[in-house]
Design a protein around this nucleic acid. Structure first.
Lengths: 266, 266
DNA sequence: GCATATGTGTTCGTTACCGAACATACAGAT
DNA sequence: ATCTGTATGTTCGGTAACGAACACATATGC
């Protein structure tokens, strides 16, 4: 699957990967692997056991569309690696990222929030894997088990903070600052210090021009903070990035730390 | 209480109305009055009855701060009139509105979401009244009663949509369009066709300059859509505003219609 | 090795919004 | 009737991001 399956900035017709969507690879999950997702890993054993038969481990290839705007959500997704982006696409094709989720969370909150759909698209921004669970099973667990309810709602509040902060950041901060925020938020959800991501795609996520990202990335590279070659960005100096980012990054990171269970030992 | 109690754009130190906050006027609510808030009005009778002894009807004067960023929330608020604005205030004093709530909703979702606080401020943007309820009682009802849970979560999802759309609108739409969005969203939460609101305050909510709002408002006045004099804005042509607004307004309105119980007959 | 697609660098004129400063107009108090 | 504070109108230079266009460089397939 190539990068081109993600609709570029301004493209009129979003393209989803039908083949990947209709027949995802699926294996029987071991209890151990589920721990790779922090929500699944924080569930009480009794709740997790009930889910195990229905948790399907699937690939999340770059560009895969998990939900389209307005879709009734049939599954929820718990990434174990990779990043899923919540993206709002406007009528004219302009887009803007609202929030991202990695292995600290899940995709599909509208299922237990009650709406069963949202006016946004969920698309894989960085390839990985994850579990999916049938809507009905998730719903039953949410209504039945207090711990499940509370865990998921706390995650949802963290997500709300990320969305709010995105709104504020879009209003007040420079493209350069926002680029740093985006790199750091993505980096926090990836194992190494490399992002596989073209500037064109970053621009689409941030809702800005590709040239703007190029200029921003150049500055960061000249400052020795990152290095990149054709879609591979390596972070060289994380502290340097944190020195350039706006306050939005720390607000979001701290809220996630406060609201979600601690990360498991690596 | 004067308008000046709302911190102006760029002010360094937010001011809260301590006197109003510590001794709100309070009366015993009749079951009928609670119907003025659409969430309270949609509760099953048995749940509402349990709340009645603890629901305090209070004034919501312009500028009153219900929560400061990071405050532990001791009460939740159900406006019956007026508008409460969720505002994020940055270190340098710049602010931006994240969402607004009127009598269709409530303020203080972090109570049942689990965080007990948020990194934003809740401030009365248009004076009115509302009920407040002690945190503990709300929490118990949320955990005990399925209908309460589901009603509040659906409202929360609508709020999430408003926040997302604010993020997108901040990114892509002109000040003029955003002004229209703001006027319409506010108008939907007020009884008549008049807003008591200075351009300075609107600017603070939108996170833009006062002059920008002046210019936008002038255009709307010249087009015969609104009329205003010193803090009183009258909407003359609602359809005209809707013709100028960006798609964001309709997305939010439609999501509220979809997710929340229908408005009661007036 | 060559063609082609994809990713990045650079330029240029335009525009929306910014911050600052100041002018005018109306409202309420004395 | 005047004073004073508040709300709105207007101007001006600066700047960050925009859209368009094009150059160049590195992969990939033939």
């Amino acid at each position: 699957m190539s990068v081109t399956s993600i609709p570029p900035h301004k493209s009129k017709k979003p393209v989803s990967d039908k083949s990947a969507h209709s027949h995802p690879k699926s294996v029987v999950p071991s209890s151990h692997e589920t721990k790779l997702n922090r929500l699944l890993g924080s569930l009480p054993d009794e709740d997790l056991k009930l889910w195990l038969p229905d948790l399907e481990l699937i690939e999340l290839p770059l560009g895969k569309v998990l939900y389209e705007s307005g879709d009734i959500e049939k599954y929820v997704y718990f990434p174990t690696s990779g990043i899923v982006s919540l993206l709002y696409v406007m009528k004219n094709g302009d887009a803007a990222e609202i929030a991202i989720t990695g292995n600290e969370g899940m995709v599909g909150i509208s299922l237990f929030m009650g709406g069963n759909s949202t006016p946004s698209r969920a698309v894989v921004q960085s390839a990985g894997r994850g579990y999916r669970l049938k809507a009905q099973i998730m719903k039953e667990a949410f209504d039945r088990s207090g711990p499940v309810t509370h865990l998921l709602l706390r995650f949802t509040q963290a997500l709300i903070t990320q969305m709010s902060q995105t709104a504020v950041c879009n209003r007040h901060h420079s493209l350069d600052e926002q680029l740093c925020r985006w790199l750091l938020l993505s980096l926090d959800r990836l194992p190494g210090s490399e992002l596989v991501m073209t500037q064109e795609l970053i621009a689409n996520m941030l809702g800005v021009r590709r040239q703007g990202v190029t200029e921003g990335a150049l500055k960061l590279q000249e400052a020795g903070l990152i290095r990149y070659v054709r879609g591979r960005i390596t972070i060289l100096d994380r502290m340097g990035l944190e020195a350039r980012v706006c306050e939005c990054y720390a607000v979001v990171r701290d809220e996630y730390d406060r609201l979600l269970p601690k990360e498991l030992a690596a």
